[in-house]
Design a protein around this nucleic acid. Structure first.
Lengths: 230, 230, 230, 230
DNA sequence: CATGAATGAGGTTTCATTCAT
DNA sequence: GATGAATGAAACCTCATTCAT
């Protein structure tokens, strides 16, 4: 890690990309190349982690010249950061689109749990990027302004859902939104993150749709049993 | 990975270690060297993962000559396997010593949840080794006969606890022990495995004893609210 | 040996070299680098054998960065194979250019014997590469399709020379071309391959041009005395 | 190579062995250990050459502790020298026992050729040790006083056989005993030393007894056709 | 923008040899 | 005499990165 700690990711000339939100007018070819790199890098980092990922593999899988990776992203670590930022941004965006505040409180919570299971099912790379990042003690998450800005939000939504639920006597009072969020996150995340060791332990293929559905239903029950007013 | 797939990791005669359950009485010096290597390797693999760990670092941290690592463990991967086996064995042993079957069912479940939080608190390497292993799709767990033999067990205990609880009208019928176990595992594991990203997200230091206690209590509540007979 | 048994020695794309017959027109710089490596490698392998050769030495002698050896040839063993293939191909080519079939039978045989002595004199590496390969039980020769395709040929030529000689009453009937070829090969090869121990034994410098000429003449006599019609 | 260049092979105390002809009164156990080492070392050096041979393998194959090799032979190179000396001595001894001078000259030459084929058939290690030594430019042969003393002899015998043959009009005059010896050596040695590449080239298993017999007969013919008085 | 070639530091592993009982 | 443990140099190879076109 070098570049990413500096305020300006890459010292040299190069393209302005990396952490600049605005999609400045670059050529379509350039844009495509960068997307190919990001896609291949996401797979590789998700598959092998930061240390295990190989720049050569990313170049080959993306079909672009290795030097292009350095041209656009500066270093392996900065590329990792770009991958992480994109994955996080996409997940947060999906969360925002749930519009939980518009739903019946119980349904909102249910939907949130189900969303998590669904999202991880469809985006297995997210789980592995999170695991990788946690192995690094959130080193890159902490250093990225873009990522830090992205956090929270959901807690506020949960808070309003819970207080609405309380008023409607659907949800018991005193539920801590942070604890609740962590439990929902735990129940969904763990099932995917540890599926390999769990499958081995139980000799059961946890990845099957039937198992997944059962597991999600169980998680919903667990959460609702805890928050429902009695 | 090469050696670890074969039954005898290292061709030469050398010391018998690696997968020999019995701690055969070899010289104390040798025994000590191996323990030093294992201790340092546990730290290094837990810290950096398999790919990120450096044999040089393990040698230096353990204070033994680098070659000794190859002498006793054959390769970096076989050393990783030895570390994994030892960590797993220790955790399973601790679980066994809980003697859950002897307790009141509700207390047994409570104790299990608290044990998990406690164990991970005291053995942070376990979390990271599990995360590492899951990133590798349980590659080494699957290949180790010792490790495969170690699995399960706890499910059987849970089953008998649940059925005792049912009989005593303390626990509602129909609780799936595997689902329950996974939820307990999820709630405890996640808090530690993802503490880095969570702390960043919430701007709260989750590692503090106070937070830990609160989190554990919440997990117990969640589980008990779900299984208690009403 | 690992890579050389697989069809594609090196997974990455990289340059196409190794077993590609055609000398595809890649950059002159690259071509030159590869030739420098091959030349230095030929010397080193001929000098020390496969096990005794040092990649570092080859890099240094060739004046290229060590990594380039791996870039172009994948591994020490694959480089050895490339050296072997090139040396064999060159010798076979020279043999072909003898056009023995166009000569008077007795002259053809004479020329073949003299050629062998001459070729080994001018290409001492060939002797040592053959010795190395035989020490390895022709491991690489057997595994190389290019090399296997290269064999034989000369036997067919010998056969036609012998039958022409028979018709012309110059050569006695019933000479086995394989036996004859082996004898020619033996008489020429041995003088060079064992010159070190022979020189020591006889206290005579066998490498001198005078000795060489005498030895070659003796070999011609031996062969002709055997095949000539009487 | 270090010790072997010095006048006294090993500086330390140790046993007096190595190059001392006399079988001084050492314990039987010691004697047996040394023989086991020599036997295993002969196989290993013959199989892999000096550079490719592994001290560990010799220790394991001989069933003695590695340190014993150093105790008795000082270094890998000195052990190689001991192996070479023993192999040479044995071959020279067998040659001496032929008593060629007592035979009819033609029979003597025939017997010599046949002996060489027979000896190499029964002692394949000799071929490979010779090849190894020649790859090293007879480095060890030259440096060993014992080995240098062993050479020649056979030339003298040949000389007397040839002159006896001349007198009896069985052998034509003017045959150079050194050239003749080299040819006999070449024809016999080559067949074994290059059997791997030859077998590959001709797709014929040269190691079979039938092939061997044919080859030997051919060699005898070749030699006799050359020296016989006409 | 893009490519193939090149670099150097460092990574894992091997090996002959010696130490300490 | 014999053994297991230890050592350090060096071997092969990998990898992120940069150069030159």
């Amino acid at each position: 890690m070098k570049a990413a700690t500096k305020s300006t990711p890459r010292s040299k000339k190069g393209p302005l990309t990396t952490a600049s939100g605005a999609p400045d007018m670059r050529s379509q070819r350039s844009e495509r190349t960068q997307q190919q790199i990001l896609a291949a890098a996401t797979d590789e980092f998700a598959d092998k982690g930061l240390a295990g990922a190989r720049v050569d593999v990313i170049a080959e899988e993306s079909g672009v010249n290795k030097q292009m990776i350095y041209y656009y992203y500066g270093s392996k670590e900065d590329l990792y950061l770009a991958v992480l930022e994109r994955a996080y941004a996409a997940m947060r965006q999906s969360e925002r689109e749930l519009n939980l505040a518009d739903l019946n409180p119980i349904e909102a919570i249910t939907k949130l749990v189900e969303f998590k299971f669904d999202y991880y099912t469809k985006n297995p790379a997210m789980i592995r990027l999170l695991a990788t990042e946690n192995m690094q003690n959130a080193h890159y998450l902490k250093r990225s302004t873009r990522l830090r800005e992205m956090q929270v939000s959901l807690i506020d939504v949960l808070l309003s859902v819970l207080s609405a639920g309380e008023k409607q006597k659907l949800i018991r009072p005193g539920v801590d939104p942070v604890q609740l969020y962590m439990s929902i996150a735990a129940l969904s995340y763990f099932y995917f993150s540890n599926s390999a060791t769990l499958s081995t332990a139980f000799g059961r293929n946890l990845a099957s749709p039937a198992e997944l559905k059962k597991r999600c239903a169980h998680a919903v029950d667990l959460i609702l049993d805890h928050i429902r007013a009695r």
